[in-house]
Computed example of a mutant assay.
Amino acid sequence: MIKLRDVCRHVRSKQAGPFWITFDIFFNGRENFERYSDCAALSPGQFARLYGTDPEQVKRVAVPDLEMVKISYPRATPQGGMVERDMHAGQQYVRLLDVMVE
């Protein structure tokens, strides 16, 4: 089985304002982009399971020219709140690295 980390050159997460978190998934070449960018592992349902969000709220945009996919979802609580554990959302991508894409 192939993990997302094996077909990407860079995966990052970051804040997208105080109410959203976004992921940038850069594939390692055109072939990997075309093969895996639309896989079930990167579906709204998978993000809902991984990050505890509503799949209807997950936004997904493929950017073929950059061989990347951008996926965003709303934060459970606003950035900087009392229960905030990752203020800039820079650690959220880690659990995606071991997701099986094939």
Rank of each mutant, 00 (worst) to 15 (best):
I2E: 05
K3G: 09
L4N: 08
L4Q: 04
R5S: 04
D6N: 15
V7Q: 01
V7E: 00
V7G: 00
C8Q: 03
C8G: 04
R9A: 02
R9Y: 01
R9E: 10
R9F: 08
H10T: 01
V11D: 05
V11I: 09
R12E: 10
R12M: 02
R12S: 06
R12A: 10
S13T: 00
K14P: 00
K14W: 01
K14Y: 07
A16M: 03
A16W: 08
A16K: 15
P18E: 09
P18H: 00
W20N: 14
W20Y: 01
I21D: 02
D24C: 03
D24E: 10
I25N: 07
F26P: 12
F26V: 05
F26W: 09
F27T: 02
F27S: 05
F27A: 04
N28P: 02
N28H: 12
N28W: 11
N28C: 02
R30P: 05
E31Q: 11
E31C: 05
E34P: 00
R35H: 08
R35V: 13
Y36P: 10
Y36T: 03
S37W: 06
D38G: 14
C39Y: 04
C39S: 12
C39M: 04
A40P: 09
A41F: 02
A41K: 10
A41L: 10
A41V: 03
L42K: 04
L42R: 10
S43A: 06
S43N: 08
P44L: 10
P44G: 13
Q46F: 06
Q46S: 07
F47A: 06
F47H: 03
F47S: 07
A48P: 15
R49P: 07
L50D: 02
L50C: 11
Y51D: 08
Y51R: 11
Y51N: 09
G52K: 14
G52Y: 03
T53E: 03
D54T: 14
E56P: 12
E56M: 14
E56I: 09
E56R: 15
Q57E: 08
K59S: 15
R60L: 08
V61G: 07
A62R: 06
A62I: 04
A62Y: 00
A62E: 03
V63G: 06
V63A: 05
E67A: 12
E67L: 15
V69Y: 02
K70Q: 15
I71N: 04
I71G: 09
I71R: 08
S72Q: 09
Y73R: 13
Y73H: 15
Y73F: 15
Y73G: 11
R75E: 07
R75D: 11
A76M: 14
A76D: 01
A76F: 00
P78W: 08
Q79H: 05
G80W: 06
G81K: 05
G81P: 06
G81C: 15
M82R: 12
M82V: 07
M82Y: 04
E84L: 13
E84M: 13
R85L: 14
D86I: 05
D86A: 13
M87T: 11
M87R: 14
H88I: 05
H88N: 13
H88Y: 08
A89D: 03
Q91P: 01
Q91M: 10
Q92W: 00
Q92A: 09
Y93W: 01
Y93D: 07
Y93R: 01
Y93N: 10
Y93A: 07
V94H: 07
R95I: 02
L96R: 11
L97P: 03
V99Q: 03
V99I: 10
M100T: 02
V101T: 04
E102W: 12
E102D: 09
E102G: 11
